[in-house]
């Protein structure tokens, strides 16, 4: 229904409303210059392209609308609106995706790993030098980070059956473990209840 301007029939605009002045070969202009009620779409004719369709002569300025206050459909609108904050996870029977909620007992430990705002464990794998160096990082550590480091080292030594190098960044509140131990450390964190 929009007014369409195409360069190939640009000059036809000047002929609208001046039918008498148009020479006999007006069909060559590529536009049908009738001035009927063109805003009515259902008496439709398929024009081969926009340029060949006629200009809209009569556009209705105002259409009639029902304004419905507190409509029953508002529930459908509300479900489309974004979350205000990330929702807390409600307790469920089981979590098939393998995600495990944090447990209350973990808060009594001398160290703590808090969850991210997405309720995930903050354990990541940093890959550098085109995959030649893999470093597992545990972030968001609170409490006694050195004790946590000792525990991780002992646990990894048993799990990987070799000595595993770690590095503690106290101010950054994270520990880096040399090698890809994301799954092992995630299991450990779940056991601890973080």
């Amino acid at each position: 229904m929009a007014t369409v301007w195409r360069s190939q029939c640009a000059f036809t605009r000047f002929f609208i409303g001046k039918i008498a002045q148009i020479p006999n070969n007006s069909s060559d202009l590529g536009t049908k210059l009738s001035l009927g009620p063109l805003s009515v779409p259902w008496v439709s004719r398929n024009y081969s392209n926009y340029a060949h369709s006629p200009f809209v002569s009569k556009v209705k300025e105002q259409y009639e609308f029902d304004v419905v206050k507190n409509p029953p459909e508002w529930a459908y609108v509300e479900r489309l609106l974004p979350f205000d904050t990330i929702p807390a996870v409600s307790p469920k029977e089981k979590y098939p995706s393998g995600w495990i909620p944090p447990r209350e007992e973990a808060r009594n430990l001398p160290f703590f790993v808090s969850r991210t705002k997405n309720h995930e464990l903050p354990i990541y794998l940093n890959v550098t030098f085109r995959g030649m160096r893999k470093i597992t990082q545990i972030r968001k550590i609170d409490g006694d980070i050195w004790l946590l480091n000792d525990e991780i080292k002992a646990y990894l030594k048993e799990a990987a059956k070799r000595y595993v190098e770690t590095r503690v960044h106290e101010l950054g509140k994270f520990i880096e473990v040399k090698g890809d131990y994301v799954n092992v450390l995630r299991d450990w964190a779940y056991i601890k209840g973080f």
Partner: peptide, 14 residues
């Protein structure tokens, strides 16, 4: 969204 209302067209054409 501001007034929490929905405008539904009544016009035959629309």
């Amino acid at each position: 969204l501001k007034d929490k209302c929905i405008l539904k067209p009544r016009d035959e054409e629309l």
